[in-house]
Design a protein around this nucleic acid. Sequence first.
DNA 1: TTTAAGCTTGAACAATCATTCAAGAAAATC
DNA 2: GATTTTCTTGAATGATTGTTCAAGCTTAAA
Lengths: 193, 193
Amino acid sequence: MRSAEFNKEHVLRQAMVTFMQYGYNKTSMQTLTKATGLHPGSIYCAFKNKKGLLLGAIEQYQQDRNAQFETLFSQHTTAHSALSALLDVIVDECLNGESGQVCLLTKTLTELEGQNDEISSVLANNLISFENSLAKVIQDGIKRQEISAKPDAKERAQFLAMGIYGIRTYAATRRQAEILRQLSDRLLATVLT
Amino acid sequence: MRSAEFNKEHVLRQAMVTFMQYGYNKTSMQTLTKATGLHPGSIYCAFKNKKGLLLGAIEQYQQDRNAQFETLFSQHTTAHSALSALLDVIVDECLNGESGQVCLLTKTLTELEGQNDEISSVLANNLISFENSLAKVIQDGIKRQEISAKPDAKERAQFLAMGIYGIRTYAATRRQAEILRQLSDRLLATVLT
DNA sequence: TTTAAGCTTGAACAATCATTCAAGAAAATC
DNA sequence: GATTTTCTTGAATGATTGTTCAAGCTTAAA
């Protein structure tokens, strides 16, 4: 009877950052031991294997993101200002985040799609849940008669999600503040019109 | 004096498909020898190394894509029908293409961004050149007074490119014809309004 | 203080990785 | 037909991969 010495959340966040930076396949266990400070045995004991560590990191990412966005949304009273603030965060991450260190979900899904169905479906589910939380914000705006009920919240949220994924890939080709802001402005206008 | 036995274009297309399916880091040289039919020595003689083979595959991909899209665009007289046809092709690829086997450029850029600056910049340049060819089609539409001159062709093309990247990532989460068609319709309407 | 449970450590494992290279084979030149 | 040039072949390289495991250590219960 002895409790683990390491902080699981902390370890998962370190792994998360490492997976985001190098991608799943390029991240070696050696890299992960250095990043987390854990020895191989401890990692395999706590997370079973490399895939288990990724799944843990994905879960932690989702938790952190949900908390971040819920806080953000709670600070705004209209769908417009809430989503505008969200896009500001995303554009800012694209501009100021370390190169290659984008959203763990989209990055890993792009890499592993068609290779690992288990991880892919976990990632897809998490992204759909993100889309659903966008739909909720939009639905609130519709209820408040801030925007029209047609197209419905679901359809608007799908387009917004698509746009966010697109902005991130676009930023990989051109990291220019002016362009990314223009894209996000136009995206928001389209979604809320 | 003896000419190579293999067809370079053919080999590059095989490599291209393999890289698309597994991603750069998960594609081993062993896999590539099987896919191309070439022995290691021949690959290293013709392309220097694995990275060189990827660069060759990217070039081939770009060539094939340019030819495909130029043919497609030449069959249409309005920007609307040309871009609509393009989006049909892309949506069709998302729906009927093998899972994970999306655009080599965006997939590889997402995987290698921040890891390999040489490959990343080649990919970014190719994607920007794709965006420029979109701008050209749009500019033609403006000249023909099919669409208004403001926002300009460049800005519209940027938004369209972003949308295309977004649709592909979105398709990785949900491969549903109805949704993807709705997204592409809405994207086209936004770009041409 | 002894015992027992379980975490930590890090060396070792087989497998796979990208790459090399010397020998064999084929075509072009003489 | 001989020679030379270049391509092909595939075994071998050392490095790195993900994973295991037995020994050592720490803590909580007895």
